[in-house]
Simulated scan of single mutants.
Amino acid sequence: MKKTMLKRMCLVTLAVASFGVITGVPAQAGYSLNPEVKDATPALKQAAEIGVRVYENEAMKNAPDKDAILVLSFGTTFKDSREKTINKTVSEIQAAHPDTKVVLAFTSHIIVDRIGQNEGLMIPTPEKALADLKKDGYTRVAITSLDVIPGMEYAYDTAIYDLYKKDFKKMTVGTPIMYWMGQEEQRDDVEEFVQALSTQFPKLAQDEAILVMAHGTPHPANAYYSVVQNRLDAANLGNVFVYSVEGWPHLDTVMPQLKAKGIKKVTLMPMMMVAGDHANNDMAGAEPDSHKSVLEAEGFTVNTYIHGLGENGAVRKMFVERANEAWNALEKR
């Protein structure tokens, strides 16, 4: 038993020695290998790529610089919300980089098709956007994400980066607005996000609560919602609970807590970039199985706040900051 435990401890020590630790490294650097590692394999180098990721194509080092920022969002068919959230955020990213081409792409191919059919508006997929940029002679691309957590959608963003980076002289990909949690001297994105989100909270009486509806994901990043709940509790914002449509915790997880605290009135609000189908129907719809209807059937008085995160100026500022990080990594020599 003792030998087995010692062996495990040695393996952990070797792993830490291989990857090193972060001490005073800028946030965009993410992680750095221990300088004692002299023969890092490609797999070890790739495993250490967290935070803002950077690829420089040695074969194209003499190509002229022609730069673009590619903004990736899941997208929405709800036109009004899209204009108030996604489009407004992209406009602010463009304003921060007035001399740079900024392109928006939607990762949901279904939404791209529906918008094309219903509105005649052709928003590209990431694959199409990068093909067009390459065709037009762009050689350096900073990819930035409008994702909230690094879940399934962000995995798509980084897959795009991995698959297309060799087509360009240099490519970077930034992080969602929540990535770092204050670990290893990194900043705490979750705490910053909670402060930004709280700017839209109503004042709460003792018997009132806010239920923040996240999307949820089968990806392990679903655990971010527990960290958000921890930071909400630490911020002493009153009775604020996170639940999700498709992940954990569920509405059923939260309701017993509301009853135990004697909550009588709740406000529902989405923790999603847009107020789309989930916010308008799953959360606030008139159907018996909507979250609003379920809570009312349990005796709660329910208000709904149907606005996407992109309508919150403090949250948009975080998205612009993430775009700036991807851009700064692109510019760094």
Rank of each mutant, 00 (worst) to 15 (best):
I143N: 02
G276R: 06
R333D: 14
R316L: 03
E321V: 00
M1N: 14
N118E: 06
S32N: 06
V302N: 11
V190G: 07
L295E: 00
E246W: 15
P150Q: 00
M122D: 15
N281S: 12
I160H: 06
Y161F: 12
W248E: 01
P64K: 01
F19Y: 14
D252Q: 13
V194T: 07
L211S: 05
T217W: 03
V21H: 05
T158F: 06
V148Q: 04
V315D: 01
K38G: 07
M273D: 08
E49Y: 01
K166D: 07
S81L: 05
M5F: 15
I123N: 05
D167S: 14
E49L: 00
K101S: 09
A284L: 05
R333V: 10
I263E: 07
S293K: 14
E153K: 04
T77F: 13
T76K: 10
A196V: 08
V52W: 01
N239P: 15
R53L: 00
L72T: 08
L204P: 11
F78Y: 15
T144W: 02
L237T: 07
A214V: 01
K134T: 07
E246H: 14
H215E: 02
K45C: 04
V294P: 04
T253A: 14
K264N: 13
H291T: 03
A205W: 07
V228F: 11
P288D: 04
S145I: 01
M213C: 13
A205M: 04
I263M: 08
L146R: 07
Q257N: 14
L72Y: 11
R231D: 00
V112R: 15
D207F: 05
Q186S: 09
N57E: 04
N118P: 08
V52M: 00
D188G: 09
P124D: 03
D65V: 11
K61T: 12
E58P: 12
G238D: 08
I93S: 03
L163A: 13
N34S: 09
A221E: 04
T175C: 05
T76Q: 11
F319V: 02
G238A: 04
D67A: 13
V254N: 12
Y31Q: 00
M255N: 11
A314I: 05
E58C: 08
L14Y: 13
M273I: 15
K166A: 11
T107W: 10
T301G: 09
R333H: 15
N62M: 03
V148G: 05
G310H: 09
A235C: 12
P270W: 09
R82Y: 15
G308C: 05
G276T: 05
Y164E: 01
P256Y: 12
N87F: 15
Y154K: 01
E153N: 09
F78N: 11
E56P: 12
N62V: 02
Y154V: 00
E287Y: 15
R114C: 03
K134S: 09
P42K: 02
K66W: 10
I93W: 01
V148D: 04
S244R: 02
T199K: 08
E191D: 13
Q183P: 09
G276S: 10
G238M: 01
P256K: 08
M273G: 14
F241S: 02
